[in-house]
Amino acid sequence: MNVPSAPGRRLTAGLFYTVLAAWAFAVWSAPIDSVQGVIQKILYVHPPLAFGAYLGFFCTALFGGLYLWKGDDRWDRWSLSSAEVGVLLCTLMLLTGPIWAKGTWGKWWSWDTRLTITLLQYLVYLAYLLLRGFTEGSERTARFGAVYAIAGVVLIPLNYFAIEMAAGRAIHPENLGDGSLGAGMGMPFLLGIVVVLSAFAYLVVRRYEVACLRDEAARREVEATGSEGAWAT
């Protein structure tokens, strides 16, 4: 059996590197904020990472749902890949956020609504990866993962409602981009979003390839030894 080459690897790689260069230049030449100073440039990486992380969580649930519907392993591999890349981007968002907060508000963490929801969502997808690691049998792993991913994505609006009601505290600016960005800051911000989204696509495609190769290696191992209980991806 051929190891399938993931669709669009060249395309996503090319897109990613092109936008990366444009983004790096735009961030470099972006004006320095008159109030916050140079630290405000974290704007061009932190909120875009949030877009990427939530896209990852959404895709995990979407592909999980498609797997449950169609029963095709490929959807499960896409689902796992989205989750892993989403967790990576979410980790980076949760690291860059406190760095920015420490520099401007003087404290690493505050229990702001969006922070809390993101942290909870992060824990859900960490649990998702643990669940997959601890479940034996690739078909069962895929089913459990899909069900958990869907439950996890449903949690986002519920949490939003719950935390607003119970402990509503907002320090994040609302309606970003509604003219609230200073002159010359819109372009690098937009490029930041594009660069994170293309990085997401690029990494997911590469992760998908690794998942295919691991499944294939596990399949051959089963074939060679005749033993059950191969679980990879």
Binding site: I39, K41, I42, V45, L95, T96, I99, G103
Partner: peptide, 12 residues
């Protein structure tokens, strides 16, 4: 400055 550079270095 240090904070900003740290954020970019960690992410990229």
């Amino acid at each position: 400055m240090g904070y900003m550079i740290a954020a970019y270095v960690i992410s990229v």
